[in-house]
Design a protein around this nucleic acid. Structure first.
Lengths: 105, 105
DNA sequence: TTTAATACTAAGCATTCCTTAGTTCCGCGT
DNA sequence: ACGCGGAACTAAGGAATGCTTAGTATTAAA
């Protein structure tokens, strides 16, 4: 989150205020989030994501690869998204990775 | 989450137990999560995601398009992921969507 | 209809977060 | 070096939320 905030170029306090947090505690809360002292609820994460211009899921991606993919997907326009998703569907068919799900064979 | 659990074919209680939740309250907790009564913390979500065989970020995707993409990305093998990500990088260059980030021009 | 498994819920306890009220850190101008 | 202002950061209590318990519905099969 810190990286995303610095890309936008705003302070911790400003990020909080823009996300709709009370101005008197915005600074403290964002700091607690960035340092991992506390975890924001989902609504707050959604608001933060909007301010920072990234999809909400970006904050929960464990693999760096996936995080980057989510970021890219959030930037391209809706028309491109469909093309993109279609080629993804193709690749998942081609893939020889085993399908772990039950009830599909 | 309900959909993912049903694909695996296990009960709410079993999902909880496999995710490391105490057997006497696993049922109640998973039910509260599925019905939106309460929200699990991130560690719990990670454990649930592992049991259900999906990337953690999947549970936080707001757009259906993105959710599907995350799901596919979670199924393909590591080698494919890199190829996939590279073509994604290409597309983000081609895209005429405006770049909102500061300090990049 | 009885049974067993699964789904679901209320309520108090436990834990975590939010708010307040500060302190510390850092860069800049003098 | 010193003071100033903005940004980062923190402790602690009050407020909110989740977790556990114990139990009630629901469903499907015998």
């Amino acid at each position: 989150m810190k990286a995303a905030r610095e890309r936008v170029g705003i302070s911790q306090a400003e990020l909080g205020v823009r996300a709709g947090i009370d101005e008197f505690c915005a600074s403290a809360r964002i700091n607690q989030y960035e340092r991992g002292k506390h975890a924001p609820d989902f609504l707050t994460v959604q608001n933060l994501a909007q301010v920072l211009g990234v999809p909400t899921a970006y904050f929960y991606a464990e693999e760096d690869n996936l995080a980057e993919l989510i970021l890219i997907f959030g930037k391209i326009n809706p028309e491109e998204k469909n093309k993109f998703l279609n080629s993804a569907r193709e690749k998942s068919k081609e893939s020889d990775s085993f399908d772990f799900r039950l009830g599909t064979h």
